[in-house]
Design a protein around this nucleic acid. Structure first.
Lengths: 178, 178
DNA sequence: TCTATGTATGTAATATGATAACATGTCAAG
DNA sequence: CTTGACATGTTATCATATTACATACATAGA
């Protein structure tokens, strides 16, 4: 599951805040720092606690900058002296997901840090089937289409899972060349 | 996982071909029969084989008329003398999914028969968080919004997973009353 | 008709993902 | 300093999915 285009954390960085930059090369330490700072602010405001494990899990996902399975996260936690049983990872991930700091990517049974916590939240994910890079894209138009169609049936949408697989720009070009 | 509004196979029948009827009461044996017939025609045309296991899995999903886990399907297969190891179920389900006869619902780790095989295929699912009823909805507008947003990023969408949780009409009313 | 080939199925073993249940620790309000 | 709420640690177990390999089965070509 090593993303091709984001194996080097300093190079390509899909999933970053600016959707236009999502699949383009840039230094992602900036976005990671931003996000962590914003998360702390939100937590303080919301009356919930960003405990050491939770904070560390968020950091791990930000550092890694790609979707990680719960057990991958757990391995890293254990290596750093936190608990090494599944619930430790799941609890932290669930907390972060509920508070909008990470998203669950069902197609991959994995979790990825949210790149714009506190903002619009009905994320859409683009998953490259070739390099596994994952980008988070603004969802407003998709969500609007969904809401409208659903309300015609009398269904009240609360949460959405929208994930697309396909080819990211880099892999698309590579495949065309082959 | 017994859907409230579709516990009785002859009453409410979410997920049927006509999206307007999805959450309304009707006799679903009609849709099930239709679908199976259409599936056979498609299979003949497509050069693939609807073997006994595969056919039976499709029938089970049509009869049940709700999302079923692979192991639920497997239990029923085993009871009828087919193999009782996971791959038996997964292989049939994968085949059916690849050929558009069933859909995988990731949120539920489950599979449901497609109610209009051969037609437009970028399904959207509406899942009631209260009664677990699942409806398949036409996806064209959602898909269009998704394609457009993705292509701005240079991402070529191939397959999509679009699932919404919320309240179906019946549960919506019930909750409002409470 | 035989037999080679591809495709489907059967089976065992195991990997991977997720949760239930309960014990222990931590911290702040009363 | 105690109580209560929340967080964490730990055991055990369940649920979902896949790998690998053996066997059967259809069918096209010799």
């Amino acid at each position: 599951m090593t993303g091709m285009s984001n194996a080097d954390p300093d190079s390509d960085c899909p999933g970053c805040a600016d959707p236009a930059a999502a699949f383009a090369a840039h230094d992602h330490r900036n976005c990671a720092g931003d996000v962590l700072a914003r998360a702390e602010a939100l937590v303080a405001a919301g009356g919930v606690r960003l405990t050491p494990v939770r904070r560390r899990v968020l950091e791990i996902l930000l550092e890694e900058h790609r979707a990680l399975g719960a057990y991958d996260v757990l391995k890293r936690l254990a290596a750093e002296g936190f608990g090494n049983q599944p619930p430790v990872a799941y609890r932290a991930l669930d907390f972060l997901a509920e508070n909008g700091f990470v998203h669950r990517i069902r197609r991959l049974n994995a979790f990825a840090a949210c790149m714009h916590p506190g903002e619009d939240h009905a994320p859409v994910f683009l998953i490259c089937r070739n390099c596994n890079a994952v980008a988070e894209m603004p969802a407003a138009p998709v969500r609007a289409a969904l809401d409208e169609a659903a309300s015609d049936l009398g269904f009240a949408v609360e949460r959405t899972t929208v994930e697309a697989t396909g080819l990211c720009p880099a892999c698309c070009k590579a495949e065309a060349a082959a």
